[in-house]
Design a protein around this nucleic acid. Structure first.
Lengths: 150, 150
DNA sequence: TTGACAAATAGGAATGAATCCTATTTAAGA
DNA sequence: TCTTAAATAGGATTCATTCCTATTTGTCAA
């Protein structure tokens, strides 16, 4: 990500915090920066280890609590998983996910064909939909290649 | 579920175990019976508590290990979640999920419109798709009603 | 039917993830 | 500045899951 693009996102993030009356702490900004630079839907622990380079005595609890706060105010998403630790996604725009069952990688994709996954009427009346996503389980290219070696 | 329908499913389950050279133990059958009668995508702990009524000294480890085995041989699915304990789904036919963010309920639904969620070509070439599902996040009717009380 | 053996189980210990607790620090408005 | 509520660090605790090992039990072949 370009520096200017990143600064823009950080600026928007700060405005969101203000709107929600959340204090702008260096830790929060640091965690947010780590998040938007991540490409792998990181766990709290991974964010912790990364942000620790800049803030050597930040605590895990701060990182974890902050990630929950971010999810509450909508600046990140908690991603669907199949067990294991929570994973976070700084991309809150509409997109879909491939899950590799072998290596656990989550790959983002967009697709016109799913653009307006309309919600069945019978459901729209009894359930208030907030977000929609297609989740594909399978094997990524790397893992498929590995399997064929046996 | 009707008894005959259930016996049929148990019979199929037993055949699958044999095919995979898994021993048919009373615990496994008991756990499978609990699963196919569950409507709530139960956690290992809930299955454990339920099956304990019939097998008072079954261990949690047995239940948990067995559920993993079942997932491996494909007789149950591990369901996508947003953190928290693993949840299991005895319905392995194609269907979709609503997740209530307030109470955690997962509601199954089927929909013609999603019938053949075709996989984008660009993806089909690099990723081997095993299953596909639409995941809708939102609020169920009960929880929507509760929120409006405030 | 019986005996042998690998597989499965029970129960407890160990690990990992997330949350809670509390004393201390700090952002932000007066 | 000064004040105060919010946020943090660090450790303790809880909950979920996996690991370990002695014992039991399906299954298959004789």
């Amino acid at each position: 990500m370009q520096d200017t693009k990143m600064d823009q996102r950080v600026q928007l993030f700060i405005e969101t915090c203000r709107r929600r009356q959340l204090k702008i702490t260096p830790q929060r900004v640091g965690i947010y920066r780590v998040l938007i630079q991540s490409k792998r839907h990181p766990t709290a622990d991974l964010v912790f280890k990364t942000v620790k380079k800049e803030f050597p005595n930040i605590s895990f609890d701060t990182v974890n609590r902050t990630l929950s706060t971010f999810a509450e105010i909508g600046v990140v998403d908690v991603v669907e998983t199949f067990g294991g630790p929570k994973r976070f996604d700084p991309d809150i725009t509409d997109h879909h996910h491939l899950h590799c069952m072998a290596c656990g990688r989550i790959i983002d994709f967009e697709y016109e064909g799913y653009a307006r996954l309309e919600v069945p009427k019978a459901i729209a009346t009894t359930f208030k939909v907030i977000s929609r996503r297609v989740v594909l389980k399978g094997l990524c290219d790397t893992c498929t290649a590995k399997q064929q070696m046996f």
